[in-house]
């Protein structure tokens, strides 16, 4: 039915501006380029306007490198995919404006992509998973989902803070960040290396739902108490991480048993964390399930996941009129009908 399809995808929901290029025919898909540029705040957390300015500045360069790396000419593109949400408004608008312009200028279809769906699809693609239990953890999301009746259905999620936000907020308030990541390791992990003894902290799971706010408050109180004592602070970091990850793995296990899935897929920015991976793979093993976590290149926000999900949309006839392609800061993963998912 289709010849060779070539999709360029744009990611700009939060701190990362990314361009991905994928080509494919039916189920044979290849990622040709995945170029990403991340905004790193000098102090504090992500400032939406500053992040958007970063995206505006870096966009032409990132797009040019991606096109060159892929070895394509932009006129040959079948369609442009763009992450329209959820995310930070000013950031989202950069990717959306660029994609709308390119789609109109080259008269090629525009394909809307939900950022959360893209995180899941790229993970499934990399490991050839068909029907996994999905654990999605990032700065903005912490949820457990399965596919059912053309959608991802959320089985459980955080009732307050996302896991990535918990770790980042703790790091910032305890004076460990920014930068949040040093040599590929999160500063909470680096701090935990100095600790040795475990302190039980508030542990709150509700079925498959989680709540991290009590844990954050308690950990910050201890961090204040042990200020200037790296060993004691290390104990707090270690206990915070241990408690948060224990909670997540416990609810994931509950969801796995409830749904009897045989594949467990960890996606999102926090998926790069080795301690979390280790715990989840141990858990999956108990239930004879196969575990996989997306590698760092594709676990953080990136253009390739948008291009790939755009490809799935393209071959399934998903299109959006550029004039109607407005960004959606709030757009839950379970609100999107996906024609490529089974009934």
């Amino acid at each position: 039915m289709h010849g060779e399809v070539l999709i360029v995808g744009f990611e700009s929901t939060s701190h990362t501006f990314g361009v991905g290029v994928v080509t494919g025919r039916g189920e044979h898909v290849k990622i040709l380029a995945n170029i990403n540029d991340r905004y790193v705040p000098l102090k504090g957390g992500i400032h939406p306007r500053e992040a958007a300015q970063h995206h505006v500045k870096t966009a032409p360069r990132v797009l040019k490198i991606a096109i060159e790396k892929a070895g394509i000419s932009i006129g040959d593109v079948s369609g442009f995919a763009v992450s329209l949400g959820p995310g930070l408004g000013p950031c989202l608008r950069v990717g959306a404006s660029l994609a709308r312009f390119l789609s109109s200028y080259y008269n090629k279809p525009l394909i809307p992509v939900n950022h959360a769906v893209a995180h899941v699809e790229i993970g499934k693609f990399l490991y050839n998973f068909r029907d996994p239990l999905v654990i999605y953890v990032s700065g903005g999301n912490t949820l457990i989902a399965v596919q059912r009746k053309k959608r991802y259905r959320v089985l459980g999620e955080t009732l307050d803070l996302p896991l990535g936000n918990l770790l980042d907020t703790f790091a910032r308030e305890a004076g460990l960040a920014p930068p949040y990541v040093v040599n590929g390791k999160h500063v909470v992990d680096l701090c935990a290396e100095k600790g040795s003894s475990f302190i039980p902290l508030p542990y709150s799971v509700k079925g498959i739902d989680l709540s991290f706010s009590g844990l954050l408050t308690a950990a910050l109180k201890l961090a204040e108490k042990y200020k200037g004592d790296p060993e004691k602070l290390g104990d707090v970091c270690l206990s915070l991480r241990e408690t948060a990850f224990n909670m997540l793995v416990e609810v994931a296990e509950r969801a796995l048993v409830l749904t009897s899935k045989k594949q467990v897929l960890l996606v999102g920015g926090v998926a790069a964390n080795t301690y979390l991976k280790e715990k989840l793979s141990k858990m999956a093993e108990l239930h004879n399930a196969v575990y996989a976590g997306t590698p760092p290149e594709y676990s953080g926000d990136n253009g390739a996941m948008i291009a790939y999900t755009g490809y799935l949309g393209y071959i399934n006839g998903l299109r959006i009129d550029p004039e109607k392609a407005i960004v959606r800061q709030r757009w839950r993963i379970d609100e999107v009908d996906l024609p490529w998912l089974p009934d």
């Binding site: 399965v146 059912r148 009746k149 259905r153 959320v154 089985l155 509700k206 079925g207 498959i208 409830l258």
Partner: peptide, 17 residues
Amino acid sequence: AIDIHLLRRSLNALAPE
């Protein structure tokens, strides 16, 4: 309320219809 929220969530995920 959380009890009922969890039940409803479980229904929406496993038997939406």
